[in-house]
Simulated scan of single mutants.
Amino acid sequence: MADRAYRLSFTTGGLLRADAVAIAELMVTASDASTARARAVELNLVQQRTTASTVRVTREVVQRVSALPQAGVELVAQGSVNDSRQLMWLAACLRYRFLRDFGREVVRDRLVSGRGTVEYADFDTFWNLQSSWVDALRDAADSTRAKLRQNTFRILREAGFLDEADRVLPTNLSPAVAAVVADSGDELFLSFPIHDAQVAAFAGRDGAR
């Protein structure tokens, strides 16, 4: 299940899909995540210029990928580009409740309501509503809010959920991805831009949970 806390540390890096594919390949065979992370830093799989940046980005990737079930880690490493994009969105939702909730309450809402486009103003409205009860949002600096807004849209575009005009693009989940999402929690289907019939079909695959 996703952590109930609102972490706000996704200020840079986007979806990190390519980095995740390389690191997930190590995580599949390594004895544990710490071993995989150390090896990824040694090899600089994230291709950063400084050691500090390599350590920071590698840690972020490992934390996201580690949030997935084992089948998800394997699919990130070995699946298609679309599979890895969708699973890294799932990983981001599992790691960051803000993204999970934004995907459900804003992005998917625009798809099913027919409004179609997500704007920066929608992010600000969502932030303001959530900040009424989430201290981390209410206390965040304006610069942090701006960075998170920019990176949220970057992540959504890189996941293939928004086009360059920020129109919502409905997605199709492969059976393998759908199984990983279901294993993580049926409610997470609601954080993807898919229609109600797809949610019902996926969530009902193995009966109500």
Rank of each mutant, 00 (worst) to 15 (best):
M1C: 09
A2I: 15
D3P: 04
A5Q: 11
A5S: 15
Y6F: 13
R7C: 04
F10H: 14
R17M: 09
R17F: 08
E25H: 12
L26M: 08
M27I: 04
M27G: 03
V28Y: 05
A30P: 08
D32K: 03
T35P: 00
A36E: 09
R39A: 10
E42K: 13
L43R: 10
L45K: 09
Q47R: 14
R49Q: 15
T50V: 05
S53M: 13
S53E: 15
V55H: 13
V55D: 10
V55L: 12
R56W: 10
V57K: 15
T58R: 09
Q63Y: 08
R64E: 08
A67I: 01
Q70C: 08
A71G: 13
G72Y: 09
E74Y: 03
V76G: 09
A77L: 01
A77C: 05
Q78P: 02
Q78G: 03
V81P: 09
Q86C: 02
L90M: 03
L90Q: 02
A92E: 12
L94W: 05
D101F: 09
F102S: 00
R104K: 13
E105I: 01
V106D: 06
V107I: 12
V107W: 03
R108A: 04
V112E: 11
S113W: 08
G114S: 10
G114P: 09
R115K: 14
G116W: 05
T117C: 08
A121L: 08
D122P: 01
D122I: 01
T125D: 11
F126V: 01
F126K: 00
F126L: 00
S131V: 00
S131Y: 01
S131G: 12
D139Q: 13
T144D: 03
K147Q: 15
Q150M: 11
N151M: 00
F153K: 00
R154D: 06
R154P: 01
R157D: 02
E158V: 07
E158H: 03
F161Y: 15
L162H: 03
D163R: 11
D166F: 07
D166R: 07
D166T: 09
V168K: 09
V168S: 02
P170A: 08
N172S: 12
N172W: 14
S174K: 02
A178Q: 06
A178N: 03
A182F: 14
A182W: 06
D186Q: 12
E187W: 04
P193R: 10
I194K: 12
I194C: 09
I194Y: 07
D196P: 03
A197Y: 11
A201M: 06
G204H: 11
G204I: 02
A208F: 13
